[in-house]
Nucleic acid binder design. Structure first.
Lengths: 123, 123
DNA sequence: GATATCTAGTTTCTATTAGTTACCAAAGAA
DNA sequence: TTCTTTGGTAACTAATAGAAACTAGATATC
């Protein structure tokens, strides 16, 4: 009864797409360390815009992976924290991050090989 | 000496982006099962266009994750197969796929909760 | 002989999405 | 008075994903 991950309508693929999100995983890993506020996240993640951050936080909350808590201070404080479900997903992402760190050199070397061969063929 | 995954120029993030690619992981998992030809892949992966398939195959080859082998038949046959490096990456993706399969129900439930609450607030 | 088929792509164009910039309200500080 | 802070939103633009048509070269069909 294995779901067919290659079919267009496979619900598992919807989740893989979600995880594939450029910023989502980064945010999840950060919030696993400690709860954080909106602008704190923005400053930590280089290159993310307010709009994207707001958007991704909303979708992560919708998926039940993080929690949003607004505190009535002035100006208002909004704290984001990871949920139990989010922690398990972050755990599943760890092997991937480890792989990236261990194999980065090999990938870069492969890219250089490929690029120099392409240049050769063009000449 | 931990790389800062949250910095814009972190090379590890380049790889996470790569893995985050919608089709790349799907193709990698397929080729781990058995080598496949271009149109065979296209038919198996529902919803992928020829352009995207061609593009993703090229970038996977560039990263040294798959191999391309053209056989001089008529019409020409091109076989794609996974490399050793690709196998290790696919292995790191497995926990993610397992997580998706196990927790899909919870995610969908969270989405329904969120959506109905939004509708309530709008009313 | 003209047309259709297979292969593995590329080209062109459009729709969607990602990202940038400017702006909002409310309150405190300079 | 203007500037800064909070956590966003609205409008706009750049980048990318995807749809559809086209390519080549040889073989099969009408």
């Amino acid at each position: 009864m294995k779901p067919n991950v290659y079919a267009a309508d496979c619900p598992t693929r919807r989740i893989l797409d979600r995880v594939g999100d450029k910023w989502a995983v980064l945010i999840l890993l950060l919030l696993r360390e400690e709860p954080m506020r909106f602008n704190q996240l923005r400053r930590t993640i280089e290159g993310i815009s307010q709009k994207m951050l707001s958007q991704v936080l909303k979708s992560l909350e919708r998926d039940g992976l993080i929690k949003r808590r607004a505190i009535a201070t002035v100006p208002v404080t909004v704290e984001y924290s990871i949920t139990q479900l989010g922690v398990t997903l972050a755990g599943a992402v760890d092997p991937l991050r480890d792989w990236a760190e261990q194999n980065l050199k090999d990938v870069l070397a492969a890219q250089r090989r490929y690029d120099s061969q392409q240049k050769e063929e063009a000449a």
